[in-house]
Design a protein around this nucleic acid. Structure first.
Lengths: 228, 228
DNA sequence: GCCAATTATCTTACATCGTAAGTCCAGAAG
DNA sequence: CTTCTGGACTTACGATGTAAGATAATTGGC
């Protein structure tokens, strides 16, 4: 038994020719491909390794646990959102709307990952780009840090919720077929009936929900300035 | 010693004829207790059965699958929201705010179940009460069904997001400790620092985000009426 | 009260999951 | 070359959801 070194790899050789068969990025890419193709539940360490032509345990040399892998995947999605955010508008309101659009685009591009994207708020690393951009926009609006935090949360929730609404429902493989009784819940039944054939622009829906909030923020800042 | 860590049923059988008297409602109640006490991940069929003095497979006579059980749990939470919604206000805006308050109260009462409550939208059965109430309020506001559906989604997302924000973060045992680099993401780092010591009223935050949306709905209805 | 039918529970078993521990090999360093 | 070492492989374990069937408790008919 030798002394165990046990250190999460930070090596990252800068020798430009190392042809590592497996890299963290490659694993994350393949994980996303698997999720897109077969759903979040299909992402097991063995299945993912199989796609990479490798055994399951090999993945643990790049991520300490499956949870860490999922965090990395979530971070990759955040980066994708940031990537869609090309030449951000100067006006902070338009900037926030553009951010929201990128978020929804990414959700719709990876419908099977919607839970990952909406449930994990702290992706770490480069995943903070979008959060920082959001806070920056709110800060530019004139809010102080605490208000930035609270409003950002409201905005992100709204955007994610609208995005999630527009991913095609998964035909609920789980649980029940819970169609509401039209006599007890007439409006709900009608809403569910429309639900499928709804042809509206997700970004328009987001914007209609978002603009009133942005206007309220503007008014809040103006009011505080006037009071001072 | 491979088995029989617990076997209460057998002793009961020996002692007499007292049976576990298992019912769907009781299972759901115990599931909620387990989630509240030990978290969502701790809810396994065996653990739940153990709490009920029963074997795991017995649960399958009341629910066809674990997913169905979770749906039933989610429905129970919806019913709890409805239960908090005593004497609803006349004004549709106040009614929506009251609904949102009940939702957040329920989320905060069951912090470990926040994912269940926010991710499952179709609880079925009596769980539709709150959705129906929300749609009814929007309908009273003067919106037509399609607009009701879209706006309800925005409102629910906002409310759930604000509620989820205020559940104490679980120090997420999984994944990474993703503190952002303050040089790259100064605002994010600051926000995370405030995050813990934030003392604000969740309901106030919700209301501040919600009222602008409700005002926008009112304006939308008024505009359409004027146009006609 | 007794027996058959029904219902709810238990037993056993299996495939799959995440992952701990240890083995093995190829390439870099001396 | 030899040695070191990092990454991939093998094996194994406990936990999970649940299918299939055995078994016990309850109920309804007489």
């Amino acid at each position: 038994m030798r002394r165990s070194v046990h250190k999460p790899a930070k090596s990252q050789r800068r020798a430009g020719k190392v042809r590592a068969a497996l890299s963290g990025d490659q694993i994350v890419r393949e994980a996303i491909a698997l999720i897109d193709a077969e759903g979040l539940d299909a992402l097991s360490m063995r299945a993912l390794a199989g796609r990479l032509g490798v055994e399951a345990m090999s993945l643990y040399h790049h991520f300490p646990s499956k949870a860490a892998l999922l965090t990395a995947v979530s971070r990759a999605f955040s980066e994708e959102v940031a990537g869609r955010w090309v030449n951000p508008p100067k006006d902070w309101k338009e900037r926030i709307i553009a951010l929201g659009r990128g978020e929804i685009e990414t959700i719709l591009a990876h419908p099977n990952a919607v839970l990952l994207m909406t449930a994990r708020s702290n992706p770490g690393g480069a995943g903070y780009i979008t959060i920082e951009a959001m806070l920056r926009a709110l800060s530019d609006a004139g809010l102080e840090p605490k208000a930035c935090l609270l409003w950002s949360r409201s905005i992100i929730s709204l955007v994610n919720g609208v995005g999630a609404f527009f991913v095609p429902l998964t035909a609920h493989a789980d649980g029940d077929p819970p169609t509401p009784d039209p006599r007890l819940f007439p409006l709900t039944a009608e809403a569910l009936a429309i639900r499928g054939k709804l042809s509206v622009d997700p970004y328009g829906v987001m914007e209609r929900g978002l603009r009133p909030m942005l206007a309220a923020i503007e008014a809040e800042v103006a009011a505080k300035r006037a009071r001072r």
